[in-house]
Every structure is written in C-alpha cells, then in structure tokens.
Design a protein around this nucleic acid. Structure first.
Lengths: 332, 332
DNA sequence: ACCTCGCTTGGGAGCGGTTTCAATTGGATG
DNA sequence: CATCCAATTGAAACCGCTCCCAAGCGAGGT
C-alpha cells in the first residue's frame, strides 16, 4: 500500500524511467534489468497509481455504461445483468474498469454526461439500447466522443452491436405458421426503439413469405413490460375473428399475454398459443414453457467493449455487427 | 472540451489558485471575484480534470460495487438492478461515480481487488451480500480499506445495511399460521449466507411463539434459485404428513415450489399454500399472485453509499443499519 | 586505434489540479 | 498619521506517472 515508481526504482537500483519502461513493455530494456525490476514489482505487489497514470497518458482506462432514462425502467430485465457480465469481463481482460451512468431523468442525464465527458473520467461509452430519437447519440457524435451502441442506429457514423431481431422474429412467426396457425397477431415493443421495429419487420416478412394476409388489427403496440403485454392481449382477445397465436416481442409481454388469456378463460395452449422473445430465465419455468428467441447477450456486451476499445486505442472506424439469434422451442 | 484551470484563470483575470478556491468553496475569496470566476466556468462549461484532481487530493471520487463470485449467479435477480439504482443516485448526488467489480472466479476476484485497491482507483467499496465465510471481508478489514456490506456481518468492525430478514420471515410465517396452517415447512437459502440464516430464524421464532412443533424434516435447504426451490419442494411433498404450507426464503424458490406442486398434481392454493420473500416483479403476476415480503432495496443501496461516504470523508465509525420490511399479502 | 551508430539509461519537463506560504491590500485601532 | 492584523491573492512546490532528449556504452567498420 503506497509504493511509488520512485520506490521501485530505488529498490531495483534503476531510474524511474526504466521502471516505467518495464511496466509498459517498452522494448529497449536489457532483459536482466527487466527481470530484476519485475522481481521487485511482484514482490511488493506494486500497482501504478491510476490517477497519476491517467494524468500523464490522458487516458482513464475506464469505460462507461450509459442506461438512458427511457430504458432504465427496463433495468430490472435480466438483459442488463447479462450484458454487464459480458462487458465487465471484456473490460478487465483489457485493463479497463467499467463505470455506470444510470439516468433517471433527462436533466440528470445531461448533467452527468457533461461531467463524465469533460472531466475525462471515461475514455468511451457504451450506450444501452437508446430510443432512436434519444438526443444522446447525436450529442456524442457531435462531440466526437468514442461510443458504441447496443442496438442498431441508422446514422452510419455509429458503431453498434445488435442481435438479428428481424431474423429472430421471422423464425418465431414461421414456427407458428408451421404449427398450422394462420391468424397470428403480434404485440410489439415501443415503436421508437429499433428492436421493436425490427421484430415487427420480422413478423411481417414471415407472414408475407408464406402468403398470409397482414391484418392491421393484429398488430398492437406494447411497451416491453408484463403489464403492457397483458393490456395488449386483452385488446387482441376482443377481436373477431380472434387470433389463434400471438408473437410477443418480449418474454415479459408474453407472460402478460398468457395471464390475460387465462383471465379470459382460454386454454393455453389449445385455444391460443404465445411465443416470446429474449429467453429470460422464467421462460423455461412458465406453464407451459415458453417458446422464445435467445440473443447472445453476453457476447454482445463483450463485443461492444472490444469495438469500443479499438475505437479508443486505435481510432478504429465505426463498425456494425449483427449477431445471430436462436429459436428455443419449448412446450407451446 | 479541454479547458484547464489555467485557461479559466486567464479568462477571469485571476490566478490558478483563486479558481481552485472558487471551485472548492474556500471561504477567502472576494464575492465579486468569486462571481466573476463562476461566470467564466459556467460559460465555457468547465469541469476539472478528474485524474489531475485525484492525484492532488489523493481521492478518486469513485466507489466500487463488489459482487463476489458466490452471488454473481444471482446477479440476474431484480435485486441487483434495484440496489444499483439506489446506489448510483446517491453517488451522483455526492459527486461520486460508481464502478463495478463483478467477480466470476475467486482468482479473478483477488486480482481485480488488488488492482482496485492499490491503484487507488476507488475510495471505498460496497460489498453485495457476500457469504459469511467469504475471505473478502477479512481482507478488507486487514487492509483498513473503507467498505460497507449489504447484508449483516458478525464482525463489529464491519459497517452494514441489511433488511430485517428475521422479522420479515416471522411475519410471513405468522400470516400462514393465522390462515390456519399448522404443518408449515420452509425452503431456506444457502446456509452460509446471513439472509438465509435470518429468514430461517424468523420461521423458527414464529412457530415457537405460536407453540407449534418444529419438525426438522420440514426444513429443506435451497439455493435461492427457482430450480433449487423446485427440487426442495419435491422433497417436501414426499413427506408424511405433507406440509400444507411452505415459506420459501425467496420468490424465485417460491416459483420453483409452485411448479413442483403443480407437477405433483396438487391444487395451489387449496392443497398447499406457498409464500415467498423479495417481492420480485413476477410475484404479482403469478397464478395465484404470491404473498411475499418486500425489502426497501433502493433505500438500502442509497444508505450504503451514505455510510460509505461518511466513512471515506470523515472517517466515521462502523455503523450497522437494519431496515424494516413489509408483508405484501396477495392471493395465496 | 578511432569513429559511428544503435541500444540503454537517467534527467527533467510536463500532465492539471491542490495547498502551503509569503506578499499585498485595506480597514480598524491608538 | 503610524501600526497592526485579517482577508485576499499569487507563486511555487508537489501529487506519481510518461516520454522526450541527451548522455553513456559497447560493437562493428575502416
């Protein structure tokens, strides 16, 4: 606790500069000196002072995870913990730390963001699934600040990592079609989120590909929450003819839909079938177990960190990565 | 982007020192000068360079949230997001940032912790519900490093914030007793966690207080997960006489228990009643809605930050806070 | 034997703040 | 009007690291 470069240098009988070179793997150090210095470093468990190093390198070795207020209500989704797991591991492996920027209001968001950026507290940001019209992203672009978005963004300057939501939704709906359903409804997410748009697009593509009619009334907007799914399902159950299957754009909404169906006295499955999206842990435990679409969330987090670090350290160009998803067929 | 103290000083026609004094609210600055300096600071949106300040003050203004590997499997619980919400807000309000230390293995944990501590990257840590025998806490104590535990710890030198698990469990079991149950079983958490011990203790107290017998076979250890709850319930259902009610020490386990009961062909409620603990969002949506115990998680997070900051900034003595919980009676 | 050149090494100037200390100022006091 | 003291201000040292630059060194070439 409390050694400095100077101390290590003295103990190893060299200068501060040499110890610094050893620490940073500079080539021009005689091997035996290098070893002698490492010896001392290991022995006393020396770690360079983060702030001092940041000050000199103009790098904080910290990344930030931004969760805008618009999605912070979804924060209790298991999506975020998994994302964070993927991100922290990738960060630590590269010598970075991960800090949280959780906004509860636009005002708080603006203030915190300003502080974060202009105090040089973070080298780059990962923005978790903002709404498409969130002012956050234009602002970061304007500032030229390195960031990666989780979830696609139309602007070509934006790096992002996304799951193939279109394909996932298509697979889910095709599955329903193969099971013989023809009156298939969907409960979408908030339509200002890319994931919601893409899942709806996948639904449309699947119907079109099989030549099924597209009934506007069968498309109801939800908000990715259980309660929203329930409300949307109640609306669907009032239709004539009633849909026999529903593709919910999230498992939470699928659970709400199931509840609504049961409350209406319908047998599930039997009179109505529901599939979801996300593969949250509960999905397997529902009665009946939910067929759903699994995204590689941990990988997405890790990849986002990788892209961001490349951007920060080597000024890499914007990259757009879409990862494949997987249909998980269960009881329904 | 990129003003320094020097720049501000020049623009305001004063010296670096004076600007520093203004920023840090030192008393001895003439009011008109102070105002003139603030003027400039606001106009250009100046923020001091975090690393430079840290280097000089020997404070990073960053707190860390440690999630030991033992509980990182529970990370998908809604418990953590809520805790984090409470913590981030409290941090921002005090000018701190929150960084994550998520361990996936003891080895990774040790390394990261060493790096965190000796690089002065964080001023203090909040340790999320470690197991009682986790070597983490003795180590922090030995280093004299400021930290607060979420969940009680026997060592008197440890500051902690905890929910009143004993009372919560007692309330849940008393509720079952009032409903006329006499054969009440419990599914506990891992017994090396304080919360699990305390909830079991509450169960015991309730039975004892009402003069009900304590049947060892009615106490089965789970692991706080849904699957663990299911397995434990299967064991309970094999007993003669079968318990008519079960207190599960977590909602996740309660859900697993419900599933096991249904798989065994039992009516719920009716042939068996289940209550839980935690009040996770799904609890209200179960069929039937789950009676459970709610902890003030957000407040716990905020309070932990407050205690930690007092410890860091004013060297406050260890404090132990236990917050009241609330029984949420639902359908069961 | 002398010179060049490349590899090692150490010295020192920052990086952008805080804080000590001494100098200056202005008002109160005798 | 001279003296003293507190309030205000600026200069400079320092926090611990990186990196530029110049000096020292030995090897290879002539």
């Amino acid at each position: 606790m409390g050694y400095t470069l100077e101390d290590i240098a003295r103990m190893a009988g060299v200068s501060r500069s040499t110890v610094s070179r050893v620490l940073n793997n500079h080539p021009n150090v005689r091997p035996e000196v290098r070893e002698r210095v490492w010896e001392v470093i290991r022995r006393v468990g020396y770690q360079p002072h983060a702030a001092a190093r940041s000050l000199a390198t103009r790098r904080s070795q910290v990344l930030g995870l931004v969760i805008p207020e618009a999605v912070s209500t979804l924060f209790t989704d298991p999506f975020f913990p998994e994302l964070i797991r993927g991100m922290t591991d990738a960060c630590y492996a590269r010598g970075y730390l991960l800090t949280l920027a959780l906004f509860q209001s636009p005002e708080q968001g603006r203030r915190l963001l300003h502080r974060l950026l202009s105090s040089h507290a973070v080298d780059g940001l990962i923005v978790a699934s903002a709404r498409l019209n969130d002012p956050l992203i234009p602002r970061l672009l304007e500032d030229g600040f390195p960031f990666v978005s989780i979830g696609r963004h139309p602007d070509p300057r934006v790096s992002f990592v996304d799951a193939d939501n279109v394909a996932g939704a298509r697979m889910a709906v095709e599955y329903l079609i193969r099971r013989g359903h023809t009156r298939i409804a969907t409960i979408t997410g908030p339509m200002d989120m890319a994931a919601a748009q893409d899942r709806l697009e996948g639904y449309r593509q699947a119907l079109r590909a099989r030549g099924l009619p597209l009934d506007r009334r069968y498309i109801v907007e939800g908000d990715f929450t259980q309660e929203g799914g329930r409300a949307a399902m109640q609306q669907l159950l009032g239709l004539q003819p009633r849909p026999t299957a529903v593709f919910a754009a999230s498992d939470a909404m699928a659970m709400g839909a199931l509840k609504a169906a049961r409350e209406a006295g319908l047998r599930v499955p039997g009179e109505v079938t529901v599939v979801g999206f996300d593969d949250i842990p509960q999905a397997a435990y529902l009665e009946p177990p939910l067929t759903t679409v699994r995204q590689p969330i941990v990988r997405m987090g890790a990849l986002a960190v990788q892209l961001l670090v490349e951007q920060v350290e080597r000024g890499a160009q914007p990259q757009r990565v879409v990862l494949p998803v997987e249909l998980v067929v269960r009881g329904t």
